[in-house]
């Protein structure tokens, strides 16, 4: 049977690693290539790079980072941030990204998902969604709303409906990121993750809020997630990837333990 995956997310700004707390106040915390290699050697199952560079030469900086990571790290590598077209996606794939993550641009123009799926295959298109909790209304029946542009812009779009639309359009996986939980280290948003995961037939990666190993266990069981995304809990050396996997295995989850 498939193992549950632990995925590390590296936010990259101007070619350096940054950690965002609730999407603001990002600080430089190191070299992304070095970090990626260390996590790979410590048993990481998959890597996600998120480009949060604002400058206009962002594209070439990120392609360089992806290329050097891909030549040293032999696990699936997924890249997101600012992908607006099939050509953005194919450039990243040529640089060595296995999967590409679309987010804001897909919310603004959903056909981007269909186009990327047709060009590089459904299995390589990840729809990443930033979600916040709201009072359920007629327009937002699930009580979860899609936000874009780093969490600043609410879209009056229901998160569950968007997940289903994304799946129908050809997304091969979903990243469900709770912006309420992001950066709090108080645990993933379990109800949101379980709601989406039990409604789609594609894998769901839970994101936002991980602070303790117990949080990963909870989202991989109660939250029904296929994979758990971690960031600051490993970036600052509080936990090692191998510690997390050993803990999860001891709790009875199937994990990849030989690497």
């Amino acid at each position: 049977m498939l193992s549950k995956r632990v995925i590390a997310c590296l936010d990259v700004r101007d070619g350096r690693l940054a950690k965002s707390i609730k999407f603001v106040d990002t600080k430089d915390i190191g070299d992304p290539v070095e970090k990626a290699r260390a996590y790979y050697l410590d048993g990481l199952d998959e890597l996600v790079f998120y480009d949060i560079t604002a400058s206009s030469d962002r594209r070439s900086i990120m392609l360089d980072v992806v290329e050097s990571v891909a030549s040293q790290v032999f696990i699936p590598l997924s890249v997101g941030g600012g992908i607006r077209s099939v050509s953005d996606a194919t450039d990243l794939r040529l640089a060595g990204a296995e999967k590409i993550n679309v987010n804001s641009a897909a919310v603004q123009r959903p056909a981007l998902i269909d186009e990327c799926a047709a060009a590089i295959g459904n299995q390589n298109v990840v729809l990443s969604m930033d979600v916040r909790r709201v009072e359920p209304t007629q327009a937002l029946p699930s009580g979860y709303e899609i936000v874009i542009n780093g969490g600043r812009q609410p879209m009056q779009m229901d998160a569950l409906a968007w997940a289903l639309d994304g799946e129908r359009r050809g997304a091969g996986e979903l990243v469900v990121n709770s912006i309420d939980a992001d950066g709090t280290k108080e645990g993933y948003e379990i109800a949101l993750t379980a709601l989406i995961s039990s409604s789609v037939r594609i894998p769901v990666i839970a994101s936002g809020g991980a602070g303790k190993p117990e949080h990963l266990h909870q989202v991989l069981t109660e939250g029904k997630a296929d994979a758990a995304l971690v960031a600051s809990m490993v970036h600052y050396g509080e936990y090692r990837v191998s510690d997390l996997k050993e803990y999860l295995q001891r709790q009875g989850l199937k994990m990849r333990m030989s690497w």
């Binding site: 498939l2 995956r5 299995q123 996986e173 994979a227 990849r256």
Partner: peptide, 9 residues
């Protein structure tokens, strides 16, 4: 169980 079979096995 999801199809495609995707991940580590």
């Amino acid at each position: 169980l999801k199809v495609p079979h995707m991940g580590w096995n």
